Every structure is written in C-alpha cells, then in structure tokens.
Computed example of a mutant assay.
Amino acid sequence: MARGARRSSVSGPRPDGAATRASLLEAAGPVFAEHGFDRATAKEIALRAGANAAAVNYHFGGIAPLYAEVLAEAHRRLVNYQALARAASVDTDPKDRLRRLIGLLVRVVRSQGDASWPARLIARELVSPTPHFERLRREELEPKRALVFGVIAEIMGVSTDHPLVAQAALSIMAPCFMLLIAEKRLSEVMPPLGRGHVSNERLAARLAAFALGGIAQLASGEGEA
C-alpha cells in the first residue's frame, strides 16, 4: 500500500504549465512598466505571479526573452492588428478609411489610464529603446505600419515606398504618440485637449481633417519647399 501510495504521488497531475506561463506574463507587464527592463528582476515577477523563483527561466529561458514577449503583448493589447485591418478595409473611399484609423488610434490611446501597463511599457520602450525593440518592430509595428501606409498611399496616388507617404504618416502618428506618453501633462498645459473639453470623436475628426488637408497639399506639390 505504501509503495502504491508513493507511486500515485509521483504520477499525479502536474501544475498547469500554460497557466503559470500566463501568470508570469501578466505579472511581468506591470513590473517592466514600473522598473524598466534593466531594473526588473525575475524574482519579483515570479513573486507577483505566485510562482517558483526559477519559473521565469523554465518557461521563457530568462528575463530577456520574457521582456521581448511582454513587449509584443503590450503592443497587441494597445493596437490590435485585426482591429486596424477592419478599420482599413471597411469602405472603398481611402479617406474614410483613414478617418476610421485615426478614430481607432485616438480611442486606444485615450482609453489608457495611468494604471495601464501596456501604455506605460510601450511609451518607455519608444522613449528609451532596448535591444528588444527590433522584435517589436518586426512582429508588431511593421505589419501595422504597412496597413496605414497603404491607405495613405492610396489617397495620394503613389506607391507605399514613396517618401511622401512616410512624411504624411509622421504627421498622423505624432499626435497619437504624444497622447500616449503624456496625455495628462498635455491637458494640463493645454486644457482644451483634456477629455472634459473634447470627445474622442471630435478630436479624431479634427486630427483627420488636419491630416487629410496636409496630404492633399503634399500630393499636389504645394507642400514642397
């Protein structure tokens, strides 16, 4: 009986590895957002996840691969590729598609509160890139950039690799980037930008009007120096 009982304890169900891995990802996000990649520790992440201290190495092969995975997950939560693709393909008029894309981006960045670790982590990475930015660029930024560039190029009647497309995209993305990293400070310095003064819909419509006006000038050659 004793021997059989010992066999039963050894061959019993193992802890759910997938659940532990998911818990580590969720715990790592806030830790990386708060401390940054350089100061975050596997010990703190495992503690917050309620996991063994060696779990980070076991499930991810170390804190660096975990950070790369969390960084990609943060961007997926902020800007989902499928949501962007739907916004870019709903209407035949590319101008309407651009308006919808800008509306989506404004809603996303303004929906992030101070406690949102994906927004804080992405903002930190964009301001102070780590060696793991390359994976983020390749897996998350590049496919989403291609969608936006495709719509802009269609409006301008040029190829997606035309320099004007990237220049127009900069004027579209810059306000969203500023809202992502410093919305609270911006609304303090410029109160009309605060959520209590302008809705997501109105702000997006005005940014779209500005973007489309600039694109029209660039496309006509009037914006050339």
Rank of each mutant, 00 (worst) to 15 (best):
T130Y: 11
F32Y: 08
R185Q: 15
G29V: 05
A64S: 13
D16R: 04
M190T: 11
A42L: 07
H75Q: 14
A18N: 09
A19T: 08
P163G: 03
T130N: 08
R135Q: 13
L24F: 08
A2P: 00
A68T: 12
H197F: 10
S187R: 14
R120E: 02
Y81F: 13
A18V: 07
Y67G: 03
I122S: 02
A46L: 06
L186D: 08
G50N: 05
G62E: 15
A55G: 01
E224M: 08
S111H: 04
A28F: 03
R110M: 05
F37W: 14
V148G: 00
L180P: 08
E139H: 06
A5T: 08
E139T: 10
Y58L: 15
R6E: 09
L193W: 09
H75P: 01
N200I: 11
M156L: 07
A28Y: 07
H132V: 03
L193R: 15
A205Q: 03
A40Q: 05
A74E: 09
L66F: 12
V198I: 15
R206L: 15
R39Q: 15
A42R: 07
A211F: 03
E188F: 15
A18Q: 10
S116N: 15
R135F: 12
L186Y: 12
S11H: 11
T160R: 01
L193Y: 09
A219C: 07
R202Q: 12
R202M: 08
R39T: 12
E73N: 12
H59C: 11
D96G: 00
V158Y: 06
T92P: 04
A208T: 06
V158S: 01
P143M: 11
E154F: 04
L136S: 01
Y58H: 15
R124V: 02
A174N: 08
R137C: 09
I172K: 02
A51K: 09
D91Y: 04
L164R: 00
A72R: 14
S187I: 09
A27N: 07
A68C: 10
I172P: 03
V127W: 07
A49G: 07
A54D: 14
V10G: 00
P175T: 02
A54P: 11
A27K: 02
D93N: 04
P163I: 04
H197C: 12
G223Y: 07
R135H: 12
A64E: 15
R120G: 06
E183L: 15
L71I: 08
V189M: 14
A19C: 06
L126N: 05
A204P: 05
E139V: 12
A219G: 04
I152P: 06
P118Y: 08
A22S: 03
F32G: 04
E183Q: 15
D93M: 04
D114E: 13
L136A: 02
R86I: 07
L78K: 10
H162W: 04
R100N: 06
A174P: 05
A119D: 00
L147G: 04
V158W: 06
S171D: 14
R21W: 11
E140F: 00
E125P: 03
L141I: 10
A205G: 06
E139Y: 00
A2S: 08
E44T: 09
F177G: 02
M173L: 14
S23K: 01
E44D: 13
R100C: 00
I45Y: 13
A19F: 09
G214Q: 04
V108L: 01
S220H: 05
R97E: 00
R7A: 10
G103C: 02
E201S: 09
S187Q: 12
M173W: 05
N57T: 13
